[in-house]
Simulated assay, not measured.
Amino acid sequence: MSVTIEKDSTAADSAATPEISPVAGHIGAEVTGVDLRHSLTDAQVDAIRAALHRYKVLFFHDQQIAHADQIAFSARFGTVTPSHPYDDEAPEGFPEILAVDSRKYAKRFGKVKYSYDNKWHTDVTALINPPAATVLRADIVPEQGGDTQWTNLVAAYNGLPQPLKLLADGLRAEHRFGGRHPQWSHDSSYAQKTQTNPIVTEHPVVRVHPVTGERSLFVTPGFTARLVGLSSAQSDRLLDLFFDEVTNPAYTVRLRWRAGTVAFWDNRATAHLAPTDLDDTQTTRVLYRTTLEGDIPVGPDGSASLSIAGAEFRGTGSGGN
């Protein structure tokens, strides 16, 4: 049974209990019954946080919110960070907002793109403390195409046979922007930023979630460059095996964006795939992203990630997780 909320009633919104409706077998749920233009109650925050940890990514449709609303919503769940380590084009007055704008990417990357990386990735794992969670709001979306997919990294780990779990538990991997094969032009502004200000981290291949205690397969094509201590050939073969498990369609959910849709995902337990069906179409697609300050990943043996280059990425406020 759905909950109907009057859009102009603050009292009704503040009293509403979010309704959580799962949308796929392993990941994803729609949230109804709240208007994100209004401040959430503590009970609503607790319900949404619990759903996030269970379903990994949540979808809120028909949310007519602005930058300030998005930042305020994000801040109820943690410390909001600056937009991105390499972003210098945040909307004026909103340094926390990253514009995922197809109109800007041609200049940054030397080719038409609809995200900075059209490969499966967990946000900014090159950092020693990748974001704990991400909020993405759709502003301008195409009539066809432009979908985003998410995968459950906990399900990917659980899907491995026991011998591979034991192997993965003891491995560590180097994460850097672009992974093994960066997609941007070597002379683009983005390539120059990654070369002059490198951000590289060694993470455990299996990450233990700091809240749920679940283990996830913490490797993705967008950032994972190599497995530490192995030859290039050995690393590539094992990474391909792990990537196949991470991107197994059984663990995924796909979102058809519409203007006003907000996606909120646990970046510690998911990876996502930006659209590839719009390349060379000159279609405009604009979304706005905020991220929450993350913790330093820890593996099954209790060992933490190790920074090779780059500092921790911190916000200025405080909040929960």
Results as ranks from 00 to 15, higher is better:
D8A: 12
S14G: 07
A15Q: 12
T17Q: 13
E19H: 12
V23C: 05
G33F: 00
D35F: 01
H38I: 10
T41D: 04
D42N: 08
A47S: 14
I48M: 00
A51Q: 10
K56D: 11
H61L: 10
I65L: 02
A66Y: 15
A72D: 12
F77A: 08
D88G: 10
D88K: 11
R108Y: 05
K113F: 11
N118R: 08
W120N: 15
D123M: 08
V124M: 09
R137V: 11
D139K: 11
Y157N: 02
K165S: 15
L166W: 10
A168F: 14
H175T: 08
T194R: 05
P204V: 02
V205T: 07
V205E: 13
P210A: 04
T212Q: 05
L217V: 09
F223H: 11
F223P: 02
L227Q: 01
L230T: 03
A233E: 09
A233C: 06
S235W: 08
L239Q: 12
F243E: 04
P249A: 03
V253A: 07
A263E: 04
D277C: 07
D280M: 05
Q282H: 08
T291N: 04
G302A: 02
A304T: 15
A304W: 04
A304Y: 06
L306C: 13
R314F: 15
G315H: 01
